[in-house]
């Protein structure tokens, strides 16, 4: 079967799978950003308890496999009385996993903002919260955008694993097609190309654009 025929027959399945992958990606991005900001700021906190929680979260999620986390959230968490449907368990575990890597980026870039900026904000008697929000975070944001670009590609790749708890994403649909037709090269090849297009021609250019916009807003372009 030629690739064209293949796409005509299974195109709709692949498109619906891609759509699920995109939604999983977007929801996981939201989770990852929230988790990274919370844990990154938490790790810089003076409060031992907050710092401890943040470090524990970061080390656990960075120290184990995403796939193990995914299975744990989906199969073990219900025993603690928290039942997540597969769709939620999917983006939540991908988001939390990437968020733990993101937390280190957030922490690193906040610490990379020059000392003088803190002192100037202090001299203007800004409250710590206001200083963080108005002075430190905007500058840290510009620093952290390039590593976040790479991390978002990792996140997209991570979403492929949700197929293993049967979320009907691109990976899942491709496996189904492969199982019923044995057209492995066409099925997996098409999926590889779609992931590549999403990563290289959507996510990367978007992040570049965001970097430019943010740099301009800080008057650094």
């Amino acid at each position: 079967m030629s690739l064209l025929e293949f796409l005509q027959t299974y195109g709709s399945l692949i498109v619906s799978g891609t759509w699920v992958t995109v939604i999983q990606f977007l929801l996981a991005v939201v989770v990852a950003i929230l988790a990274a900001l919370t844990a990154g700021l938490g790790k810089l906190s003076k409060n031992v308890l907050i710092r401890g929680v943040a470090i524990t979260y970061i080390e656990i999620f960075r120290g184990t496999s995403l796939l193990v986390q995914l299975f744990w959230l989906f199969y073990v968490l219900p025993l603690f009385g928290i039942t997540l449907d597969k769709f939620t368990a999917g983006f939540l575990s991908v988001g939390l996993n990437i968020g733990s890597y993101g937390a280190e980026i957030v922490r690193g870039s906040i610490q990379a903002v020059p000392r003088g900026q803190y002192e100037a904000a202090y001299a203007l008697s800004m409250s710590p919260a206001r200083r963080m929000r108005r002075i430190i975070l905007p500058q840290a944001l510009v620093l952290m955008l390039p590593p976040w670009g790479n991390l978002l590609i990792e996140l997209l790749k991570g979403t492929a694993l949700v197929a293993l708890i049967s979320v009907a994403d691109l990976m899942f649909q491709t496996r189904q097609i492969n199982a019923s037709t044995f057209l492995s090269a066409q099925a997996f090849g098409t999926a590889l190309i779609i992931y590549y297009i999403l990563a290289r021609f959507l996510i990367t250019p978007f992040m570049r654009w965001l970097e430019r916009v943010m740099a301009r807003r800080l008057g650094r372009a």
Binding site: K157, A160, L161, A185, Y195
Partner: peptide, 14 residues
Amino acid sequence: STPLVLQIFFVFYV
């Protein structure tokens, strides 16, 4: 830029 799990399937089944 493509998922490892997909590459594993690709190598195994193709």
